[in-house]
Structures are given as C-alpha cells and as structure tokens.
Write a protein that binds this DNA or RNA. Structure first.
Length: 103
DNA sequence: CGGTTGACCAAGT
DNA sequence: GACTTGGCCAACC
C-alpha cells in the first residue's frame, strides 16, 4: 500500500494526453473526499512536468475546470494541455468533453 | 496527540 | 463578478 500521494500519482499517470481530471475525481477514485490532500500530494510530487516517468500533474485541474496553481505558472500548463489536444477557454477546461474517467 | 498547512470546494456576502 | 467563511481530508511539525 502506497502513501496517499503515491496513489494520486498512479491515477494521474493513467490520464491520457488530451484529457484532464479533477482533484475531486482523483480523491473519489481513491475512495475518499480528500481533495485537499490530493492537491497536497501534487505539491509534494517528484516532478511538476513530464520528465521521464514523472507525474503529469498538469492534466489535473480544479473541479470547475479552471487550471489551479500547479507550478505557479498556469499559462505554461495551459499551453502544454493545448498542445496535447485539450481545448481551453478563458483559462478553463471543458470538463464535459475532456474529463477522464478512471477504470 | 494536537495544531497548522495546502496545487481545494461550495455557499454566502 | 470578486471576496469571505466554513468545511473537508491527509500529511507534516
């Protein structure tokens, strides 16, 4: 059994390019409602950008579809998501189209 | 074991 | 439409 944050990373890695998930979805997939702990886990995550096998935390957005804090540079993440095929409007992702569902 | 913190959420003002 | 308040859960001190 991994730490809470390890489980968060696993789920985030399951999100394919061109899709996003939310803190709430991750927490729920883990069987808990700890949105904040998820965000906290990402904050402690080993890498904030897809290096080699790092956690693609840029595919995690807030429940309302807005980007969130991430690497304190949302603009960079927006550009990255768009390059993966995610359409972003007014710094907000269309969750009805790009929300990933965990198996 | 208690208190603080956080890449949050929802509702109220 | 932006700011404030209360609440939630796990990790850290």
């Amino acid at each position: 059994m991994q730490s809470f944050n390890e489980q968060c990373y696993e789920l985030v890695r399951q999100v394919p390019a061109g899709k996003v998930t939310t803190y709430k979805a991750i927490a729920h997939a883990l069987g808990t409602g700890a949105y904040r702990a998820v965000g906290n886990a990402m904050a402690s995550n080993p890498d904030t950008f897809p290096n080699k096998g790092a956690t693609p935390c840029h595919r995690v957005v807030k429940t309302d579809g807005s980007i969130g804090g991430f690497a304190h540079l949302p603009e960079a993440k927006i550009a990255l998501l768009q390059s993966e095929g995610v359409k972003i409007k007014n710094n907000t992702v269309d969750l009805t189209t790009f929300a990933h569902v965990f198996a």
